[in-house]
Write a protein that binds this DNA or RNA. Sequence first.
DNA 1: TCGTGGGCCACAATTACATCA
DNA 2: GCTGATGTAATTGTGGCCCAC
Length: 349
Amino acid sequence: MGLGINNSNGKQEQEEREKASGKGEEESEETLKRSRRNGDDHQRLSIDPPLQLDLLPRSPVPRNTTHQGVSWPSDNGSSEGGSSGQMGLAAAARGFDVNRMPPVTAEEEEEAEDGAAAESSPNSVAAPFQMDFCIYRGAGNGGGNKRVFDGSAAGDDGGEAERASSRASDDDENGLARKKLRLSKEQSAYLEESFKEHNTLNPKQKLALAKQLNLRPRQVEVWFQNRRARTKLKQTEVDCEYLKRCCETLTEENRRLHKELQELRALKTSNPFYMQLPATTLTMCPSCERVATTTTTTTPSSSAAAATTNSTDPSSKATTPFPISRPRFYPFSQPQPQSQPPHQSSAAS
DNA sequence: TCGTGGGCCACAATTACATCA
DNA sequence: GCTGATGTAATTGTGGCCCAC
């Protein structure tokens, strides 16, 4: 615990390196398979979310792209990818990993290129937009544990640049602290856009995104994981609120039905002649407040019980004099056809 | 055909850092 | 400048699925 982020994903990064180092057809085959699986997962995940949340920010990112091999448009709209002017910095052109300390010695440089080049693909041509690079030094990288920020990449994100550079100033001397990258606004926005299109990534997409954003694939993957978790959390909150309202409504309805039942019982005792009639239940449709009449052989109490219990269960529609007009809780996104309550009096026939 | 181990992935829970009030 | 709250990047552990053997 508490190690630098670079050394933590050794195995996965190794795998990613292997993949990135080009297994060509093999990889694409595997990718396809996984994509299929991902598709399944995606289906599983995207089961008609209850109340649709719009958690996505109004992204400033122009959307003239799709994400497979997208060209990330620059902020000024020109997407002449990868010009040195857009990258704005030699470091970026060399494809610094955002968490990696720029190599100092020749050996380190070589080592860094072996690693970072393969894993996070130093988009020498990709990432045609300016991005601030908070470059950390992994614990295993040796040499000072400094975090370097290249302020020249700030662009209109100068505030972040400032913060980052000030962050860089208060160095931690021990290499044990887990350093945390804050994604730039552009990176976040682009990831959001991608998430909007698909909330899971297949390896190809992951790599492409990582390349474009100058992040490690692992970071992209983690971001998507966390994003899914956030979405789910928000959705749960919304669901909770909705259920609370449902509960309140049902409680109120239950109270009302109990009251009605008592009134009917009182009527029954005060008017014995009433007993000669076929058992009839008067029930108020909760949605339209109209009375539906049903002839039944059950006692008033049992019918009332049915009326109070069936409200939550759409499947019990058949036993109720009116369909449940409340939108079904799950799935939420499908608008329920507002079926007309059958106000036919099937009773007394 | 069935069982098993490995690889990969997603997820939940948690940690730890950065930022802000 | 300190502190608690909050947001979120990153880690860890687990389970499911697929595939090769």
